[in-house]
Design a protein around this nucleic acid. Structure first.
Length: 478
RNA sequence: GCCGAGGUGACAGAGUGGCUAAUGUGACCGCCUGCAGAGCGGUUUUCCGGGAGUUCGAAUCUUCCCCUCGGCACCA
């Protein structure tokens, strides 16, 4: 079975074959750091994190690059508005972003370049474009990409025509009177006196929005990427512009072999975005839900579909995920108890079967929804076997190992989630819990249900859930 | 105007030509339990937007229609 991916470039499913053997250069557009990131960003970065982890799982050597855009109009405007130093502001939100990603167990990129640290390289690229004749500078100190020089190339990704673009833009295209052509986009923007800028052959200025990704993906990856990804909203104009710039810079085609785009996070079917003001920051959501739950919520939908966010939908995800967590708990508990030793080929077989279906699902354009569907079946069968059939200790350990193998891809369980079952709430040491369970056991032996239930209620109030079973009483954090 | 996504049970959401259409949530019933929880089993009555066509066979392919949503020089 080969890995197949949906390529925005061709709008088709394609076999995934990197340029060079098992080596994969993967570039994901990072955030513009002018504010805390919202759940829509989390959706994107968690999705690509899973894709990256899966590629690694399948034996690829992945070089994962994701940038930080720390200079652009939005950052400048926000700093002005807040009366803060621009660099202090972008540093603050860069840190906030990295913190969020860490909390969500998104693996750190192999390279995470910042635009402000690559100004010389950007200037050099702009010069190359001017020398090649695909860019021009103006008397105002701006440099534009000359679209008329490669008009036939516009729309390779977005499948738009110049005519359609001009008709639909509804006057939203910036009117800069030094542009040769209305659709030309800026590579270098002159900075007015008193605004952040760097010296360049065209005067003081700063990079345009698209050029940084071209420059940094080449520096840390390759002139030709295997995968370039980002949100669907970046297809046009951002990724389109990147293709034009990069290909005319290097003369190599294609700039990226595969283009992957994730769907949006919506609220009441509307896209969550800062400009609409209908967003929840990652930090706000992390206050109420665990990282595993948030990841599960995201991964429980295929990356190209929109996810409609609501408190209810997250709670539903939390309940669904708990089924899987309960299986882990059941297996761990069985390990701690005397158990029915016996033929364990059922579990071994089940693990192998599940692994196979999981790989098939993931190979189909990273179909995490189907993969998790398989996981629920696995979970149900494990629960059944653990409580009804003979099984060996080794087989139980294999189950846990398999679960952590999956967790390495999806990251929906995580170590601290396993630990959550034994995490001790503050002010309630474990011996105290065991003591109370002991007291309750004695009450139960004497059929003193009132006392037994009172102890159970008391523990519940403190966040400990008691579960009686045939082989003793289990407790876990509620 | 141009480009795109989608309509599957109460809800969410897989499946893209072929046994009884995954899976989860919710609801209900049963087993287990002192009760509860968790778990297991079952039920949720023709669930594939509508018409026409292709086919031995269509949720899946073709065509027309209806409806919803997104993008179009801010954006993950």
């Amino acid at each position: 079975m080969v890995l197949r991916v949906y390529n925005t470039l061709t709008r088709e499913m394609e076999n995934f074959i990197p340029f060079c053997g098992k080596k994969v250069n993967m570039y994901i557009c990072g955030p513009t750091v002018y504010d805390h990131c919202h759940l829509g960003h989390a959706r994107s970065y968690v999705s690509f994190d899973v894709i990256r982890r899966y590629l690694i799982y399948r034996g690829y050597d992945v070089n994962y690059i994701s940038n930080i855009t720390d200079i652009d109009d939005k950052v400048i405007d926000r700093a002005k508005e807040k009366g803060e130093d621009l660099f202090a502001l972008s540093r603050k939100f860069t840190e906030s972003f990295i913190e969020d990603m860490k909390a969500l167990r998104v693996l750190a990129p192999d390279a995470q370049p910042k635009v402000t640290e690559h100004i010389p390289e950007i200037i050099e690229a702009v010069e190359t474009l001017i020398n090649k004749g695909t860019a021009y500078s103006t008397h105002k100190g701006n440099v534009y990409y000359d679209l008329m020089r490669s008009e036939e190339k516009i729309g390779t990704l977005s499948h738009q025509t110049v005519k359609g673009l001009l008709e639909g833009s509804g006057g939203r295209i910036e009117v800069e009177n030094d542009k040769k052509y209305q659709l030309d986009f800026v590579l270098w923007k002159s900075a007015p006196q008193g605004e952040t800028g760097w010296e360049s052959p065209w005067g003081r200025g700063r990079p345009g929005w698209h050029i940084e990704c071209s420059v940094m993906s080449m520096k840390y990856g390759s002139q030709q990427l295997d995968i370039h990804g980002g949100g669907m909203d970046l297809i046009f104009p951002h990724h389109e512009a990147e293709i034009l710039q990069s290909e005319s810079c290097t003369g190599k085609h294609p700039f990226s072999k595969y283009w992957l785009h994730n769907g949006f996070l919506t609220i009441n079917k509307e896209k969550m975005s800062k400009s609409l003001g209908n967003f929840f920051t990652i930090k706000e959501v992390l206050d109420k839900f665990s990282p595993g739950t948030i990841r599960f919520f995201i991964v429980y939908t295929h990356y190209r579909n929109n996810i409609d966010f609501s408190g209810e939908s997250l709670e539903e995800a939390a309940r669904a995920r708990k089924r899987l967590l309960n299986t882990i708990s059941n297996v761990k508990h069985a390990l701690n108890e005397a158990h029915k030793d016996g033929n364990d080929c059922r579990l071994t077989e089940l693990i192998n079967e599940t692994r196979e279906t999981l790989i098939n699902s993931m190979d189909d354009d990273f179909n995490t929804r189907e993969a998790i569907g398989n996981l629920f079946v696995f979970s149900r069968k494990v629960n059944y076997i653990v409580s009804n059939e003979a099984h060996s200790r080794a087989a139980l350990e294999d189950v846990l190992e398999f679960i952590s193998e999956i967790d390495g891809i999806l990251g929906i369980f995580g170590e601290e989630e396993h630990e959550a079952y034994k995490n001790i709430p503050e002010g309630l040491p474990e011996y105290k819990i065991m003591e109370m369970i002991g007291l309750r056991d004695r009450a139960r032996e004497g059929k003193d249900w009132v006392k037994a239930d009172a102890i159970r209620d008391e523990l519940k109030e403190k966040g400990i859930i008691i579960e009686d079973g045939n082989d003793g009483t289990k407790w876990r954090k509620g």
